[in-house]
C-alpha cells in the first residue's frame, strides 16, 4: 500500500523531469524543425554579414523556415541553403534579402514572392538576392561621397 503510493509519486516525478527535458529539446532546442523537412531552396549572396545557420526565413514577417547551411561556392560567393515549408507556392521570381531585426538584432532572410506563373520546386536557386546591409561600407561611402562634393 505504502510502496504503491510511493511508486506512483516517483512515476509522477520522472514524468515531470522527462517532460522538462522534452520541453527544452522540442520547444527551445528546435528539434521538431529537423523532423518533417520542407523543401530546399538555394540563394547566393555577395555578402551575408552575420547570417548564421538556423536563422529564420520569413515572408511578410511570418516565419516559414530556416537557414540550414552556408557554404562558399566556386565563385567565392556565399551559398545559403534554406529549408522552407512545402505547402507554400512561391513563384520562380521570388527574391531573397538579408535583413536585420532592429539595429543590433539577429539577421534573417526575407522572401518576397514575385508575379510569375511558374512555381519554385525543391532544390531550385533563387535568382534575385539582396545582400546584407554593410554599415561600414555605407558609412564609408557617405563620408567619401561628402568629401567629393566639397
Amino acid at each position: 500500500m505504502q510502496s504503491t503510493r510511493r511508486d506512483f509519486i516517483v512515476g509522477v516525478f520522472v514524468v515531470i523531469g522527462l517532460g522538462a527535458i522534452a520541453y527544452l529539446s522540442l520547444q527551445t532546442g528546435g528539434v521538431s524543425y529537423t523532423g518533417p523537412r520542407g523543401f530546399e531552396l538555394v540563394a547566393t549572396f555577395d555578402e551575408i554579414g552575420g547570417l548564421t545557420a538556423r536563422a529564420p526565413v520569413v515572408i511578410s514577417g511570418v516565419k516559414v523556415g530556416q537557414v540550414t547551411d552556408i557554404v562558399l561556392d566556386e565563385d567565392l560567393r556565399a551559398r545559403v541553403m534554406l529549408d522552407v515549408r512545402d505547402d507554400l507556392e512561391l513563384s520562380i521570381d521570388t527574391s531573397a534579402s538579408i535583413r536585420t531585426s532592429g539595429l543590433l538584432g539577429n539577421q534573417f532572410i526575407a522572401l518576397e514572392p514575385g508575379g510569375e506563373i511558374d512555381m519554385l520546386v525543391n532544390g531550385d536557386d533563387l535568382d534575385f538576392t539582396e545582400s546584407a546591409l554593410n554599415l561600414e561600407a555605407l558609412i564609408g561611402a557617405f563620408v567619401h561621397g561628402s568629401t567629393e562634393d566639397d
Binding site: 527544452l24 527551445t28 532546442g29 528546435g30 539577429n106
Partner: peptide, 17 residues
C-alpha cells in the same frame, strides 16, 4: 523567439543533460 533561435539541441541541450 530569441530563446528558441539561439538554443541548439545537439550543442546545448544534450550537453546540459
Amino acid at each position: 523567439a530569441s530563446l528558441e533561435d539561439s538554443v541548439d539541441f545537439r550543442e546545448d541541450i544534450v550537453g546540459s543533460v
